[in-house]
């Protein structure tokens, strides 16, 4: 009987061990994600990027922390001045996305973020970079939609590219507006399979509705 106690004890003990880290992972991630979407200053973003970095180092097989760290760098690239500084952030984001791709190949969200990186590259110097990076951005976003036709973020960013392109070329923006409409529909019906999956962008999409009215 004493033996059984010990086995029970060991079982209980191992259950705690097994359960604690992943709970802690979820908890740490949720708290970091919360900080990410409430970050305001560059320092806030750097701090939250560090948080994801720590989680990514401990959980070497998870793509989520790398993804969010990359996202933080993309946002930081839009907040700082100077082409070199912006490129440094985007380079960091791209490096992370390549690492995340190894852990989670053919992931529509990772490609969406890659499309976002190329999009910011265009904005740094539209005259000289537009032709190359606009194509790469739209290519990545269309690929992301191919992998998951219900990805609202890929649609939203694609609509941004299409509308921007139409404005630059003096064409009409009906194509981009149709994509934006689709993005808004998808946001309405979006259900995250995993609490850590990306769910950002809805408010951004809503704020752009005005361009199409």
């Amino acid at each position: 009987m004493k033996k059984l106690d010990l086995i029970l004890c060991a079982l209980f003990f191992s259950l705690i061990i097994a359960a604690t880290p992943s709970d802690a992972y979820e908890k740490a991630m949720q708290s970091a994600i919360e900080s990410l979407f409430s970050a305001e200053s560059l320092e806030d973003y750097q701090t939250v990027s560090n948080s994801f970095d720590r989680i990514a180092k401990k959980e070497a097989k998870k793509w989520h922390p790398i993804y969010y760290k990359a996202y933080a760098h993309v946002i930081m690239s839009t907040m700082i001045q100077g082409a070199t500084e912006k490129d440094d952030q985007l380079d960091a984001a791209m490096e992370l996305l390549i690492a995340a791709d190894e852990l989670s190949p053919n992931n529509s969200e990772l490609l969406t973020l890659e499309g976002f990186v190329h999009m910011i590259r265009v904005t740094i110097d539209p005259g000289s970079r537009g032709p190359e990076y606009a194509g790469q951005s739209m290519g990545a976003l269309q690929k992301a939609i191919g992998m998951n036709p219900k990805n609202p973020r890929a649609h939203m960013l694609l609509s941004d590219m299409q509308i921007g392109m139409a404005r630059f070329m003096g064409g009409d923006n009906s194509e981009g507006c149709a994509t934006l409409k689709k993005a808004l529909e998808l946001y309405e019906n979006e259900e995250a399979a995993n609490a850590l999956d990306p769910s950002w962008g809805k408010e951004w999409a809503l704020s752009k509705k005005g361009q199409c009215e």
Binding site: E43, Q46, T47, N50, R54, K58
Partner: peptide, 18 residues
Amino acid sequence: IGANIYLEDTYDGTSSDL
């Protein structure tokens, strides 16, 4: 500013302030 300080193989850590 913004250095990442943590204990290896844990979630425990923080960033340095201004």
